[in-house]
Write a protein that binds this DNA or RNA. Sequence first.
RNA 1: GUGAGUGUAGCUCAGCUGGUGGCAGCACCGGGUUGUGGCCUCGGCGGUCGUGGGUUCAAGUCCCUCCACUCACC
Length: 373
Amino acid sequence: MPSPFTVLARSSECQARTGRLVTLRGTIETPVFMPVGTQATVKAVTPEDLKSLGAQIILGNTYHLYIRPGHELIRELGGLHRFMHWDRPILTDSGGFQIFSLNELAKITEEGAAFRSHLDGAKLFLSPEDAIHVQEALGSDIMMTLDTCIPFPATRDEAARATALTNRWARRCRTAQSPTGQLLFGIVQGGMNEDLRLEALEELKDIGFDGYALGGLSVGEPKEMMLDILACCAPRLPEERSRYLMGVGTPEDLVEGVRHGVDMFDCVMPTRNARNGMLFTSQGKLVIKNACFQRDAGPLDPLCTCSVCKNFSRAYLRHLFQSHEILASQLNSIHNLHYYCNLMAQMREAIRQDRFLAFRDEFYRLRNGQKPM
RNA sequence: GUGAGUGUAGCUCAGCUGGUGGCAGCACCGGGUUGUGGCCUCGGCGGUCGUGGGUUCAAGUCCCUCCACUCACC
């Protein structure tokens, strides 16, 4: 099976690498950040804006779209891309995480996950096969296997059982897949247990996936713990398959993830925090609602080249936020996503020039005080 | 001018028949946010109860005076 992923350059000092992932709707340069568009929209941002700020691929969610408006409706209307007017790649999350995080009463059995709709309480069921069929109906470019997410903390026994089930589901997902050309990524669980993680990883490699994801991280565990798992797992994933760290994270997390050899990330942080007034800048975080920006005529981030920083002052952005204007969410989201996409572009360039660690040092130096982890 | 009504937090107001000023809303200030139930969430600041007297053990609450504002009528 030819690999959809090719490594183009490697750091000589760490695990960082840059590469190219080929999908049905185009090629993605990695490392990449994927803005989250759960309900067939990256909240507050138009597809045109996403393109101009440099988004290569976005994420959609099986769980949400399955519940509303329904995958059959989206299929009928020409698939998710046409439905939301986005012609670049889309990765769909399988719904495992949402069933885990939105449904306290979800019942996980060998067959699949029984849960209730968070919208109307309706009883629903999703098997690994269903998850694949829904994602095929949506027509995403990268599908994810249905997994079970292990809460933190969890006992070793709980983690072992959930991981084994996730692995069996992964095999069923692979089997259920039709030859649509869509890629399918397997998800490594295992909680905070390195041996379980490595075991899961080997089983998934045996099944054979187009890419491998690390799931169940950044769920409340200490940061060092996540980095330990990352350092242990990432190098053991197949070299010529892309590696996806799910749901992560802060700018620092992205830099450290890349250092450990991760190629793909997604996180709600840039968009959610934008809507709540927390903005990312080259000098660290900035809470735009703070009174000190009331008369600040300067740009959000003097080192940023985004349209928001070029055209608007901190004072104006604060005013929009304080006034609950819709434009605040829009502009803040554009800026934060630009920051994330630009950070990834800078890392790709640094790896190509084999100066990733120097880039990392500079990244932390700008945020003077914040030390490398 | 006469009659009626209203004055409690920056704003809008609760405060029952007197018993320590409100877990009120909004505003303001600050924190949080990691495969999105999110313009969300947690916390904080904030008051000579219009003025001056009186009654009472005790007054935002009852009585009188004055002031301000609102409405109606001359």
